[in-house]
Simulated assay, not measured.
Amino acid sequence: MTTERNNKGGRPKLADYQKRTKMVRVMFCENDFIYLQSKAAKAGLSVGEYCHQAAMDNTVREMVSPELAKGIRDLSGIANNVNQMAHQMHVIGLDAVKEECIGIIAAISEIINRIKPLHHDR
């Protein structure tokens, strides 16, 4: 007894209007191609997909670097501390948490100064 499977698995087929059926050949010199590869790698795309997005006038952005992602996580962690201090200020007053506030401001400044050079060209 043979049963036919309707669902063969895999990605669903694209509609006709979504299929990329036309190809454009572009030539690069060695230096330009290396530059293009590095830009595509920074964006987390293949060279072909990078060129496609650039040609379609989309904004091609770099992926967030691990250093920048760590800085963002650090700032998020400090935000929790700031909320706790705000609560303490309402309960026991500003003078009691003044030193903690100064420490957190210094930590935020240090993180921003560490992130700034990583993200300066945008």
Rank of each mutant, 00 (worst) to 15 (best):
D57R: 14
T21Y: 05
Q88C: 09
C51R: 01
R20D: 05
C101Q: 08
M89N: 02
L14Q: 11
V91R: 06
V82K: 01
I111R: 05
M85T: 11
V82Q: 03
N31I: 13
I72E: 12
I111E: 06
G44H: 06
D74P: 02
T59W: 03
I112C: 10
K98F: 06
H52S: 15
K42H: 11
R5T: 13
I115F: 09
A86T: 07
N80R: 15
R11M: 00
M23S: 07
K98M: 09
N6G: 14
G9D: 04
Q88F: 13
I72L: 12
A107D: 12
D16I: 00
K98L: 07
I102Q: 09
E99M: 12
K116D: 15
M23Q: 11
Q84G: 10
N6D: 09
F28L: 05
L36T: 07
A96F: 05
P12Y: 04
A79K: 11
P66F: 02
A54K: 03
F33Y: 09
K39F: 02
H119F: 12
G9R: 06
V97S: 00
E110K: 08
R122S: 09
S38M: 14
A96R: 03
A43W: 03
K22M: 12
K13E: 00
P66W: 01
V24S: 02
Y50S: 02
R122W: 10
K22E: 10
K22P: 00
K42N: 14
V82H: 02
R5F: 10
L118R: 04
I112A: 11
L94S: 13
Y17K: 01
H120R: 05
S65W: 02
S65G: 04
D95W: 06
A69S: 13
A55S: 13
V24M: 06
K19M: 02
Q88Y: 11
T2A: 14
G48P: 04
N83Y: 00
Y17S: 00
S46H: 02
A43L: 11
T21W: 00
H120F: 07
N80L: 14
R20V: 07
G48V: 07
K116T: 15
D74M: 10
I112D: 09
N6R: 01
S46N: 03
N81D: 10
E99W: 05
I112R: 12
G93T: 10
V47Y: 00
I108S: 03
N58S: 14
R11S: 04
R20I: 05
Q84E: 09
I78D: 01
I72W: 05
K8M: 13
A41V: 05
A69H: 12
T59P: 03
D16H: 05
C29L: 04
N113Y: 12
M85Q: 04
R61V: 14
A41E: 04
